[in-house]
Structure formats: structure tokens, C-alpha cells
Design a protein around this nucleic acid. Structure first.
Lengths: 227, 227, 227, 227
DNA sequence: GATGAATGAGGTTTCATTCAT
DNA sequence: GATGAATGAAACCTCATTCAT
């Protein structure tokens, strides 16, 4: 489904070399952002010649997208695991929050690259990337909520697509707050403490409360609803 | 309080020219991002020579930050208005959501610039920008929630700083979804419809539900907690 | 005799302003060298507008030459005083050495400007400057030596013009060693101590010995010449 | 011992190209001085692209210093040869003077570059360059004089470091007088004839006299000291 | 006379991409 | 397949000089 962004040659190389290239690329793109990342440096870090790099990827952009795909597939696996269980929605939510915390702390570069594409200025590329990255996740969330809705596990008046969207927004922002410079500083301003000096438990608890209530609370219809 | 990032000469010019420069800068930075934005183009759009541009700003970075400050002050005024009222927290929240929608639709470039700094890779600059931009907003949110907490208007077991943080995360993500290419596409994937082809009312309603419940719901302690 | 390098207007201004301009120019040119010196900065330091600066001088070059002339005239006065006395050559030499030391220590910027023109790359400008600056000095030296030669005060086989040249070379190098970065470091390498941490007496004594002998020694022709 | 100022790539190229670059650089820097020298012109003269130039040198400054080192090493070899002989000091001096004359006439650009660094305004760079360039020479001179002193070949009351310094000053000034515009004109003013229209013999003879006497003469202590 | 805003050519440096070997 | 030397367009920034007021 997802279009590949590398030349054929890239498929014929050893896993070791492939990983070495992807890791070098991810590191460089995460550290400096797309524009300032330097392909020649990536090739050097990966231990291959720049000429060979261009045997594997037609452009810098293709290398970038391939790195993005690689980073995102990691995240995807985590989600997939959680979402395919039989847990109730709120159990899943808790798992998601915990997974978000630990994954963000362990894989900062993946998140940084995610943050980089969140700033993408090119409409066409945005479209392509969003579809590659968000389709599966969004479907998982929407399905889970829809199911919960059918089972009566959540309030009946919620729009599953929008609630899925809100939920992901919260997780997305949290991810960035763990890894990206601006978001980290912003978190510190809100919470008062640097994200690296806290125990995640308080955040998990509070965010879970926030989500849990949002999903389960339902106003009594009777009285007056703004009228 | 906030350090200025322009030379004195910039203060001596006519409002017309100042705005022309800021608008040209905001447009260029919003469209292309910091790295690819071209100072010569900005000068041209603003109708001044490049030499003069450097009489006003020492570096491209300074011009950028000045544009950021300009864009952010607009947003700030909107917030200030809403938050200084006597409304209850949830009324404020509703106003905030509505303001976020309309402001985002009207001032796309400001939001795009905000998105640009959210991707900042330089730690020092991130710190500086976050403090310039988030300090006031966060204080307003935290205060409002704390007050509501004291009045018993919201659930008693919430952490005001974190709930403020979550609230802002939702609004932030919403803003970006209205304006930034990647987020817009992501929104479309979740909601099914492009953000430009919808009426905001459904979003306002749903997000308000989400927030309202999160803030007011309180589980009965006694009975069964999980179990 | 010396061509002026300023516009008429420069002659009509007050001494205070003239000095302020010259001092600002001398400082800037001494500190940064001709190429990197900034006329706008000089005008600022001098407390006048850049427009006015160009009412006084047609070009940066003219301002520079005027500053040079000003600085050199100071040195000239010192020399004139010493050389017009009735002292014997070696007495004059000692006075010259002492004057060189003290003048260099007190008027670093003049010497630095002198050093700047010693590096002049433009042949025509070099010619003009050298004639403005060296003519009088050289004449004084050559005359004094010629006179001493006639009186039998110095060895009979010296060429007065060349010995004057050598003498001035020694004084020139000494001046630079007191003030110019490269020469100062070079002095330190030779002498072992920074020029700012020494008493001049040892230098005066030794240089005087060097010169005195050079001027007065005369090998006996007859006897053994190297044998 | 001396830090290199080029990138590795510069070491891997052919002698022909290396020389072509160095010569182009030396010519440009000698002709126009550091500030006005144009890297693009150097690259063009050397027959390479500007991009490649920057593969060899990180900055204009590094290219300059490399050119300086190259030029200075030539001079060094000449000196080394003369100073390592068993000749008496004055024989060495004569050889030095003659070598200075002929080397200066043949390698004007090296001397012009030397003159350029003698005008260096940056203290740190001055220090570095002086130590790279003057250390060896000064040591050779000081050693030779010290040895002569021990053997009784020179006057017993001279300070070897200062006399070495004076000697080098004379040679330095002579060098510049052969090649640098300002010094050349100054020489003409002193000697009456352009340095390019004379036979060096007179200069050699006279300078040797000057130095010889300075080094060997010793006043009788007893009799009259001044007065 | 005096101002200083305005100009714009020009120089250093970066880096994606090509191609001969 | 693999190399890495080579290219050159493009961007930021400086500053001598002009000129309208």
C-alpha cells in the first residue's frame, strides 16, 4: 500500500547496511531537521560513500521518507499490540498512555522525526506522509471507540472519529513533550518540572482521569441543556 | 519583559512599513519555514532593500523571532480577553474553543509560524521562545483551573497544572489541524472530511463534551474501582 | 607640499570637531586596518552623521590618508626636535631610541596606522604615502650622518644614505615591536619577555651599542684582514 | 609541531594541483592582501571549482595560513642551510645578507605575504603565526650568537637575544624593501635609486659593515666614557 | 550646513547531486 | 557495485556611498 521511496538496489543490501543507513539518517534528521540535515554526513555516519547513497535513493527527500517510514513502523508495532487485545477501551487507553511515555523516552529520534514531519510545509508531501503514518493508527482508534460505543462502554453522544482525534492529539502532544526541545520547555512551564526529572506515574494517572471522564461521563439529559 | 530582537531603527519607522515588513516576514516564514525562507524575498515583498532589512534586524533569526512575537501577541490578546472574564471555567473553555477555531481560520500564517517554532531544533532558542510564548497562557489556564478547584466547580482530584497542560494540548492540536498541512491531512483522515469543508459547530460541541467531562466527572470512590 | 586629502568644508570646522573626527578615524583604522574599518562607525564615534563625513572627505581612502597625515605629523615633531639640535650623531641616536620607545608606548594607534600603510598594496598610494611620510625623516637622518662624516665623527667608509636607512629600519622595527600584534609576539619570541613587562633601559642600552659600534668602528686596513 | 590548516582531502591530491592552488593563493594574497583577496578568483586561477576549494580548506583564513606556511618554509630552508654550517658568525651574516637579497628578488610573493601577516590585526592569529614563523629563525640566530659569544668572536657585553633581534630586524626591513610597495618607495627615498635598478653589492657591503662593527667593536672601558 | 535612511553589488560558505573511474 | 572528487547555484550578510529633506 505504501509506496516505496528507495531504488531497487536498496532492497538487495544486507540488513546490517540497511540499518546502518537508516539509523544514520534518522539520527541526522532528528538532530538537525530536514533542511539542515546533510546527506554527505549521513553517508559518512553510515559508513558508505555518497555515491552509493544515491544508488539507493534518488533524492534527499526519498531518503528522508524512508527514514520516516522506518521510525514510524516501530511506533506502529507498539500500537498494534495494544489495540488488537480484547481489553476494554479504558484499559487500552491506559496501556497507550504508558506505552507512549516509555516509547518516547526510549526512542527520542523517532519522535523527533515525527515532529519534523508535523512541520512539513509541502502540501503534497504532507498528504502522502500523513496517509502513510496516520491511517492505520486512526483506524485502530476509531474502531476501538466505535466498538466501545456499541457495547455501551462509553457515553452514547460522542463522535467516535472526533474522540479518537482528541485522544490522539493528547498522546501526540505528550510524545513531543518528552522529546522535542520546544515542547519540553513548554511542559516545564506548565508542570514546573523538567520532563526528565519526573516519574511518569503522576502524568499517567492524571491523563487517564482526563480521558476516562471524557469518555464515560454523560450529562443527565432531563434538566436543561442550554435549552 | 520580553527581550526585543530588532535594532533601534526598526522602532523609528512608520507603522505602515513596519507592518509591511512583519507581514512579508510572517508570510514567507509561514510558507517556507525558517530555513527555506529567503530574506531577500521578504525584503522584496516588503518593498525595501536588503540592506535596509539589515538596518532593522541583525540576523535572519532576529527577524524571525520578531515575526513570531508579532504573531503570538495577536493570539495572546484573544486569550487575555476570554480569560479575564468572570465566567465559570467551562464557559471559558467553550469560548476558548470557539476562539481557537475562528482565530485559526483567520490567521493561518500566525499558526503556521507557531508550528514552525514547535519544530525548533535548537535547545536554547526553544527555551527562549517557549518562555516568551507559553508563560502567560499557561499562567492564565492554571489560575483559572485553580480557582475553579477552590470553588468546587471541577473535580477535586485533578492536578491543575497537568489539566491545564492537557487542555492546551487539545487546543494546540486543533489550531494546527486548521492550518498546517500535515495536521490538516491528519484531521481529514480522522474525521473523514477536510477541515475547510466543515462547520466548526460539531467540533466545538464534541471537544467541549470531551473537556467538560474530563473536568467535572468524579468517580464515586466507595463502590467498585476496577475490581 | 603635501597634497590635502579632504574637501574644503573640513577646513572650516572647529578644532574640536576636526580632532574628534581624526581621533575616531585613527582609532578605527588602527584597530581594524583599512579594509575592515567602517566609515559609518567612525562617523558615529566622531559624533557626526555619515552624510557630513562625506561632506568632509570624498572617499574612505581620503579620510584614511588624512588620518595618516595627522598621526605622522606627531612623530615628525618629535624627530624634528631631536634632529635640529647640535648634538653629536650618537647623542642624537640615543635620544632617538629613547623617543621611539616612549612615543611608541604612548601613541600606539599612530604606530599601528603606520604599520597599516607599511602593508599598503597599491603602488601609487604607497608612493604618495611614502613621500609624504619618509621624505623629511630620511633627509634629517642623511644630513646628520653626512655632517658627522665630514666632521670625522663616524667611520669614513660608510654610505650615509644606507646607514641612515639601516638606522631607520632598526627604529621602525622597534616601534612596531612595541605596538603591533605580530611584531610584539615576535619580540617576545626573541627576547623571552613581553614588551609590556620590561624596562626599556636594557633595550636602549643594547640598541645604542649596536648602532654606536656600527657607526664608529673602523677596521685597520693594513694589518690582518681575517688573515 | 605546526598545526595543519587544511582538511585531509588536501593531502590526497596531486603535487601539481596542490602547487597550483598554493601558487594561486600566494599570488592573490600577495597582490591584494588578505581582506581583498577573493577566494573565487583563487579557485579560478587554480583551475578548480569553489566548492572543491572548500573541500580542501574550511575557511578563507585556513587557506591563507596554509599559503603562509608554504611561503615561509621556503625561506626557512635557505636559513637552515646557512645557519647549520661551521662558519663564523660574520661569515654567516654575510651569507644571510646575500641570501636575503637574492631570495627577496626571486620570491617577491612570499615576502609580500610575510608583510601581510606583519600587519595582522588579530592578536590570537598574530601569536599563532609568529610562533609558527619566527621560533625556528630566532633560535638559530640566538644560538649562533651565543656560540660566538662563548668563543669570544663577538663583543662580550652584547645581549645575544637582543642582538639577534636587531639583526633580524635589519634583514626583515631589507626584505620588505625589495618587494613591498611602501618599503620600496621608502628605500628609494633613502638611497636615491629604485631597488630594481641597483646592484646589491653596495648594500651587502654596507650592511655587512654595519653589522660587523656592531658585533665586534668593544669600547675600552677605562679611558673616557662619554664626556 | 546637516542628517541618516536607503541602496545593492559583492564576498564567503554550504551542500545536493553528478559522473568518471 | 562502489567510490568520492567535483560542481556551482544560492543564501546570508556587509558597507561605501548617495540623496532627499
Amino acid at each position: 500500500m505504501i509506496k516505496v521511496h528507495h531504488k531497487e538496489a536498496f532492497e538487495r543490501i544486507s540488513d546490517e547496511r540497511r540499518n546502518s543507513i537508516l539509523n544514520a539518517g534518522i539520527e541526522e534528521f532528528a538532530q538537525h531537521g530536514y533542511e539542515k540535515a546533510n546527506i554527505n554526513v549521513i553517508a559518512q555516519k553510515a559508513g558508505i560513500s555518497i555515491g552509493l547513497m544515491y544508488k539507493y535513493f534518488k533524492t534527499k527527500e526519498d531518503l528522508f521518507i524512508t527514514c520516516v517510514d522506518c521510525g514510524m513502523s516501530h511506533l506502529d508495532k507498539v500500537l498494534q499490540n495494544i489495540m488488537e487485545s480484547d481489553d476494554k477501551l479504558l484499559i487500552k487507553a491506559e496501556k497507550l498512555i504508558r506505552a507512549t511515555c516509555s516509547h518516547s523516552r526510549k526512542n527520542k529520534n523517532y519522535i523527533k522525526i515525527y515532529n519534523e514531519i508535523a512541520g512539513e510545509k509541502n502540501a503534497a508531501r504532507s498528504k502522502m506522509l500523513a496517509n502513510e503514518i496516520e491511517s492505520r493508527t486512526s483506524a485502530l482508534y476509531i474502531d476501538a471507540i466505535t466498538t466501545a460505543l456499541e457495547k455501551g462502554d462509553v457515553r452514547s453522544d460522542l463522535n467516535p472519529r472526533l474522540f479518537a482525534f482528541f485522544l490522539d492529539n493528547l498522546l501526540l502532544s505528550l510524545q513531543f513533550s518528552f522529546t522535542c526541545d520546544y515542547y519540553r520547555e513548554r511542559f516545564k512551564i506548565y508542570y514546573g518540572i523538567d520532563v526528565n526529572e519526573i516519574d511518569d506515574e503522576e502524568i499517567v494517572t492524571q491523563l487517564l482521569k482526563f480521558i476516562e471522564s471524557a469518555f464515560t461521563f454523560e450529562k443527565k439529559k432531563s434538566s436543561e441543556d442550554k435549552k
